[in-house]
């Protein structure tokens, strides 16, 4: 399956990945062959088979509307690169 350098750039952008220009061709070929492999599924005759997103047959797992204890804020913020006054601090969001 043919993947273009532009498509690689687009996917990288969506995934917020910085890719070196020199790698574009290599990734295009790799992604292409992965998709090619997955595309082999298309050769299976699925007429009459409903699309399925889950392999298990279980349906409807619910929980009741009951409160559990939230975790301590210090724990919540523990892995954050930066925090302040109980907030996660992130680079400025441009509105």
């Amino acid at each position: 399956m043919k993947i273009t350098a532009d498509e690689v750039l687009h996917v990288a952008e969506l995934a917020r990945l910085k890719i070196d220009e020199t790698d574009l061709e290599r990734f295009a070929v790799q992604l292409g062959s992965i998709l090619e492999y997955v595309a082999s599924l298309e050769r299976v005759d699925t007429s009459g088979v409903a699309p399925t997103a889950h392999a298990v047959l279980t349906r409807n797992a619910f929980r009741p509307d009951e409160e559990h204890r939230s975790i301590d804020r210090d724990r919540a913020l523990e892995n954050a690169p930066d925090s302040e006054n109980g907030f996660f601090v992130v680079p400025k969001i441009i509105e």
Binding site: R63, E67, H68, S70, I71, R73, N85, G86
Partner: peptide, 17 residues
């Protein structure tokens, strides 16, 4: 998840994994 939806709590106190 079972975290409270109550409005106006101090930041990041109604959170869980």
């Amino acid at each position: 998840c079972g975290c409270s939806t109550k409005f106006g709590a101090p930041p990041n106190t109604h959170v869980c994994p």
